[in-house]
């Protein structure tokens, strides 16, 4: 376990429905990792997971936060939102399943690939949700193995 002083952390706020700023937190996370010289393949996986998680908040929640941490062992991305929550997590995890509106689909979202993409690029991934309250994703990507 890394001590507190080895841990870099930053919080990002995400506003639901703000498609203009959507993706900016993920870009910043990517820039931070690039700045500290993290391996490009790891950054690629973090960027995919962070972007998909951020877009889910923008599309489905009122607001949310990304709690981003880096220590010598791993990168953590905890995304918590206040929103509609997910009724059936098992279905939501199935590739191709989406509850996106027609408008979102026309914008190229709602392919039903978001959560499966996050899982695929994480070393550990947990999702919990309460209908009418919100959703929490906990993503860990380890620094010392390439998936």
């Amino acid at each position: 376990m890394a001590s507190q002083k080895d841990t870099f952390q930053q919080k990002f706020k995400i506003k639901g429905g703000d498609f203009i700023k959507a993706g900016e937190s993920s870009c910043e996370i990517r820039n931070i990792l690039k700045g500290i010289g993290i391996d490009a393949e790891i950054i690629r996986r973090v960027a995919i997971a962070a972007y998909e998680a951020e877009m889910n908040v923008v599309m489905y929640a009122q607001h949310g936060t990304i709690h981003f941490t880096v220590n010598p062992q791993e990168i953590g991305i905890i995304v918590e939102d206040r929103g509609q929550g997910i009724v059936d997590i098992e279905r939501a995890m199935q590739p191709g399943y989406s509850t996106a509106t027609e408008e979102m689909r026309e914008m190229g979202f709602g392919a039903g690939m978001g959560l499966p993409n996050i899982k695929k690029n994480s070393d550990t991934f947990t999702i919990t949700s309460k209908v009418g309250k919100g959703t929490k994703l906990e993503i860990v990507i380890k620094l010392n193995n390439t998936k």
Binding site: F19, G23, E24, S26, C27, R30, M55
Partner: peptide, 16 residues
Amino acid sequence: ITLQIHSNIVAVAVLK
């Protein structure tokens, strides 16, 4: 190459 023209494509392009 895409027909999407909304601003979120910029974030995707930057990330990738």
